[in-house]
Write a protein that binds this DNA or RNA. Sequence first.
DNA 1: GCAGACTTACCGACGTGTCAGTGATTTGAT
DNA 2: ATCAAATCACTGACACGTCGGTAAGTCTGC
Lengths: 225, 225
Amino acid sequence: MAAKSTADRGAATAAADRVVKPQAKTTERREAVLRAAMSVFGERGYNKGSLVEVAERAGMTHAGVLHHFGSKEALLVAMLQYRDGEEAAGVPGRAQTEGPAFLGHLLDTVAENTTRPGVVQTYTVLSAESVTEGHPAQHYFRQRFSILRTKLAGVLAEVSGRDADDPEVRDDASALIALMDGLQVQWLLDPDDVDMPRIVEKIMDQLVDRLATRSVAPPFPRPQD
Amino acid sequence: MAAKSTADRGAATAAADRVVKPQAKTTERREAVLRAAMSVFGERGYNKGSLVEVAERAGMTHAGVLHHFGSKEALLVAMLQYRDGEEAAGVPGRAQTEGPAFLGHLLDTVAENTTRPGVVQTYTVLSAESVTEGHPAQHYFRQRFSILRTKLAGVLAEVSGRDADDPEVRDDASALIALMDGLQVQWLLDPDDVDMPRIVEKIMDQLVDRLATRSVAPPFPRPQD
DNA sequence: GCAGACTTACCGACGTGTCAGTGATTTGAT
DNA sequence: ATCAAATCACTGACACGTCGGTAAGTCTGC
């Protein structure tokens, strides 16, 4: 019968070609809107950024943007998810960096961010803005921080021969994330006065070093090689 | 311009007594507006916070607020300065804590902030928002960070017997400030998962310790044993 | 009676979201 | 392959609310 929305489509073609459901260039246009949203919300924040400006940068009217995403809130959420996907895809290696290499990946990201103030600003402004009442990105950032803390704690534990549930390890994970985020604000305001990569690397080394050398009660014998 | 507003007044009359200048309750009312602004801008951010809501909480109309402060921007700036004054006055000791005691003061502040999420939110949201183009609080925060970095570097140098111009000392000052700011975002989003005072104290100790024990030697990967 | 502290009334600019309509494209039956 | 119907990707106009700011008048304490 009649398919209601674009979501209701299935088993039309057997072959696994890629352009079956949407209208050929639709994905392209949606991505243009998403990228426009990143730049606008990054420059002005979610509250001050307007759909009209997003639409202009994407080359359509604001009604067109609403046609694709339904509401400003939904656009923000879609943008956040899109950004995650892009980042994962952008890494030359596999989707997710695992183990100790993750620390190096973090350092690389900090260094790379130095060349992309726009991206840094998007993240900084939005994450802070999200703590206000009823902000649509609140759930996203709460979850993101939670996952990041857990992952970092795991890596830190692995590297230092500790337990990932050790409060000290978790504290250090929180601290490292906080350090990176906090530095971004200072750096955006005063790029010449704050050397993000150098600072993060130094503190990270120091944290790992202390975690490894000062094992309070090693649950297992851990030779330092 | 007919009835010019009283917006710009800088305590510029001769006698320092109280019977000449403001109209008795005026100072009181202005402070009420300033406090209302802190709560509104803290909850919603500067962009989303409205003069109407500030006015309501101060018990007047938004035109009344404009009468006192001239513009929304001017209100924000006045609020920021008022907050600084309040904080300085709130410390039981003198206006400014000097020397090594400053580190303890910082720790006390972090602990105290744990009981005042509103204040923390105001600072967090506004400081991040200020990095956007043309934000009225940009100058305030740039200056604030600059002064804080310098002061902290001085104290750190004093405590560890280093030079305040030492890049390592300045890096650590930036790092400590970044840590505190970054933790606030995580804490606001997840108060139970982030123990701000404990984390800051631990990192601070660690920083001071390393600064003091490791003089002016270039850092080797594994000097400690 | 006058300056200052307001209020009421209002303006123009914007911002989000709705709606009907219009071509372009895809679909499905022939 | 052809063609009509369905669906899509939009646009333009508008409804409706909100916001910062202005103008002018009123009330109050000195």
